[in-house]
């Protein structure tokens, strides 16, 4: 099987607190924070979007991989906020990092799991020897309608991974599987600026069914148990949902907390579970096993089991860590936040 050769994170500098949003929406900030399990979220700069975030994360991933960009044979970007409806984000990032012309590229969309699915694509291409290295990216500048509950969590950020042969991996990908169904929990129609959701239906029949389903599936297929893993990452639409899944499986606080980045930056959609993974890779030691399950509305979950190798130690310091980006922040007022999101001009 293929493995991760390099990883990179990027989170924009700007933040807005739940208090600031609650003030405008006449909500109780303490109730919101307790209900969602988060206190603030990241906001893109006025000149940042999925393409620039993908580029920044990719630069870090390539630094850690220590390879030449022209050795990369594919680039796939998963997002639900690609800047163009027609014109790929992947070719722009590919050109900007100097991949040349000999590479495969496409943008993917499957709500918040569009990025994790691209890791599966590249595993197939590497294992079939069609490419030596592939880039898998998940990034978003997620949208939320003013006054909607999503305003408190819809954030910006992304993660990139260089996928290559197991022998060169900082973490081998030992197994992956997906749990998929047609579930109408969250959607955004063509030409619509903001997504719609089915309220509480986004919980049990959607997020929980798929995240629990995929996680159970991978444990059964690999005959592994939760205690085998040093770190566990679940998709993070808010701070509460992954904690409930952790409780179902008996995942400890020590296993879950290192990847629970949602509490610091909100839900980065296609970047969410992947940024949880970069948090963990930043601190993992050789031999550590990691379980990650993403979730995308509509609906599906991708589960992965990884084992860190000796190579991870040298790679960790080659680029900025996820925590470096978490710590770099400047708070915005609500009106400036809306200007950053281009709701007002």
């Amino acid at each position: 099987m293929a493995g991760i050769i390099g990883w990179g994170a990027y989170i924009p500098k700007y933040r807005i607190t739940a208090e600031e949003i609650a003030l405008v929406n006449n909500d109780n900030a303490n109730a919101i924070k307790a209900g969602l399990g988060l206190t603030e979220k990241s906001v893109p700069g006025k000149d940042e979007d999925t393409i620039t975030i993908s580029h920044a994360a990719t630069k870090n991933a390539i630094l850690r991989a220590g390879i030449k960009t022209k050795e990369i044979g594919s680039i796939y970007i998963g997002s639900e906020s690609h800047p163009y409806a027609v014109k790929p984000s992947s070719s722009i990032v590919g050109d900007a990092i100097d991949l040349g012309n000999d590479y495969m590229a496409v943008d993917t969309e499957f709500a918040c799991k569009a990025g994790s699915a691209t890791i599966q694509f590249n595993m197939g291409f590497v294992d079939s020897k069609m490419i030596n290295y592939g880039l898998s990216i998940g990034a978003d500048t997620s949208q939320a309608e003013p006054g909607n509950a999503l305003e408190y969590s819809a954030a910006a950020g992304g993660a990139a991974f260089v996928i290559g042969k197991n022998e060169e991996a900082i973490a081998t990908i030992d197994y992956t599987c997906s749990f998929t169904s047609d579930t109408p929990d969250f959607w955004r129609r063509a030409m619509q600026p903001y997504p719609s959701h089915a309220g509480r239906f986004t919980g049990e029949p959607a997020y929980f069914k798929h995240v629990v389903g995929a996680t159970k599936m991978i444990l059964e297929k690999t005959k592994m148990e939760m205690k085998d893993f040093k770190y566990v990452v679940f998709h993070m639409p808010n701070g509460k949902f992954p904690e409930r899944v952790a409780k179902i499986f008996g995942v400890t606080k020590e296993q879950l907390e290192p990847g629970l980045i949602v509490k610091k930056i909100g839900n980065t959609y296609s970047g969410s579970a992947l940024l949880g993974l970069t948090c963990v890779l930043d601190i993992a030691k050789p031999g550590d096993k990691i379980l990650m399950t993403s979730y995308g509305s509509g609906s599906g979950s991708d589960s992965f089991i990884l084992t860190c190798t000796e190579k991870i130690v040298g790679a960790q310091k080659k680029a900025l860590t996820t925590q470096d980006y978490v710590d770099r922040k400047e708070y915005l007022t609500y009106s400036k936040y809306r200007k950053h999101m281009e709701t007002i001009h």
Binding site: D47, I51, T52
Partner: peptide, 17 residues
């Protein structure tokens, strides 16, 4: 150096990076 949006050519035009 960082890679960013430079500007947009109106509402329908190209986004320049």
């Amino acid at each position: 150096a960082v890679f960013r949006k430079l500007y947009k050519s109106g509402e329908k035009g190209i986004i320049h990076y």
